[in-house]
Simulated assay, not measured.
Amino acid sequence: MPQPGLEEFRFDGIGTRWEISTPRALSAGVRARLLAVVEAYDGAWSRFRPDSTASAMAREPGRHEFPPEAAPLGQLYRSLYRLSAGAMTPLIGSSLEQLGYDGDYSLRQAGPPLAAPRWEDSLDWDGSVLTNRAPVVLDIGAAGKGQLVDLLGVELRQHGHNSYLIDASGDLLYSGPDVIRVGLEHPYDPARAIGTVDLAGGALCASAANRRAWGDGLHHVLNGTTGRPVSTAVATWTMAASTMLADALATALFFVPGADLERSFEFSWLTVFSDGSAAYSAGFEGTLFT
């Protein structure tokens, strides 16, 4: 989402395209630091890299030390696991692999849907230390990209860049003096928008069943209790102070009504369902086209 009059830094990382827009160009040193943050995050959490800490958990049980960002990530996942009755879980990786979204991106279903292991039976997550009692395929994609966006925002501010727009393939974190208008992508036609939202600061994230979809009815948003793709909601948008929270809640809306999530989290939201209806919070700062 290039912005007029802003300098752009574009790169690929964690399997997605990034654009960072700033009023003044980022120095070579700052760019190198941002890329290092992305590489470190990928090296810890990616289930697609055999050298990552997460991949070590898939090979054997044991005690695994992750970076400090693991603590708030684990707390958020634990809350959403409880609120969704196990439907949203970081242990969904084996279920995704079963349906073809594996480390080789084979996109070939290996068998019937497979429920994720129960967290309480398989994993202890204590701060930055994760201990698995059996091999588990960790997948923190529902909140991890958002958390990485936040970490890059911290890095920018530490180097004196207080105005910026970070766009991680549609997950946005904005800091600046103006309000920017963002289109809400149509869940069935990426070339169209179903509305707009004004972003004055903070994060805007989306999740949709048409993204990372393959095969007949197969996509990346799975119910952990069944291993099956969700079919009721087709797209969600969330606005929150942090991108990690907005990213996670955009997925949680596929399992838990927004009004219920509002009892535990401060955010605004929009959900579009497969029957064409929509629900949204009173505070959602958007306009839907008719």
Rank of each mutant, 00 (worst) to 15 (best):
F66W: 12
P67H: 15
P67A: 08
P67R: 09
P68Y: 06
P68F: 15
E69G: 11
E69K: 01
E69C: 09
A70Y: 01
A70P: 08
A70F: 07
A71D: 12
L73Y: 03
Q75R: 14
L76K: 03
R78E: 12
R78M: 07
R78P: 03
S79I: 15
S79V: 14
L80K: 06
L80P: 02
L80H: 06
L80E: 02
Y81E: 14
Y81G: 00
R82S: 14
L83G: 06
L83F: 05
A85Y: 12
A85I: 14
G86W: 11
A87N: 02
A87C: 14
M88E: 09
T89N: 00
T89E: 06
L91T: 03
L91G: 00
L91P: 01
L91M: 06
I92A: 06
I92N: 00
S95E: 01
L96V: 05
L96D: 00
E97P: 02
Q98A: 06
Q98I: 10
L99Y: 01
G100S: 09
G100N: 08
G100Y: 02
G100P: 01
G100H: 04
Y101W: 14
D102N: 12
G103E: 12
D104F: 10
S106V: 11
S106L: 09
L107G: 03
R108W: 02
Q109T: 15
Q109C: 10
Q109S: 10
A110E: 10
A110C: 07
G111K: 08
G111T: 11
G111D: 05
P113Q: 07
A115G: 13
A115Y: 02
A115W: 05
A115E: 00
A116F: 03
A116K: 01
A116I: 11
P117A: 12
P117V: 05
P117Y: 07
W119V: 14
W119C: 05
E120F: 07
E120R: 13
E120L: 08
D121A: 15
S122L: 05
S122I: 12
L123P: 01
L123H: 07
L123Y: 04
W125D: 04
W125Y: 08
W125S: 02
D126Q: 10
D126C: 12
G127Y: 06
G127W: 10
G127L: 04
S128P: 09
S128N: 08
V129T: 13
V129P: 08
L130F: 11
T131K: 06
N132M: 09
N132C: 13
R133W: 15
A134N: 07
A134W: 10
A134L: 13
P135H: 12
P135Q: 15
P135L: 08
V136H: 04
V136A: 07
V137R: 14
L138E: 05
L138A: 09
L138K: 01
D139P: 05
D139H: 11
D139I: 14
D139Y: 08
I140K: 00
I140M: 08
G141H: 04
G141P: 07
A142V: 09
A143Q: 04
G144E: 02
K145F: 05
G146K: 06
G146I: 13
G146S: 06
Q147L: 15
Q147W: 10
L148N: 04
V149N: 03
D150P: 01
D150R: 03
L152F: 10
G153E: 01
G153F: 00
G153V: 13
V154M: 08
V154F: 11
V154G: 03
E155R: 13
E155Q: 09
L156V: 12
R157Y: 04
Q158D: 13
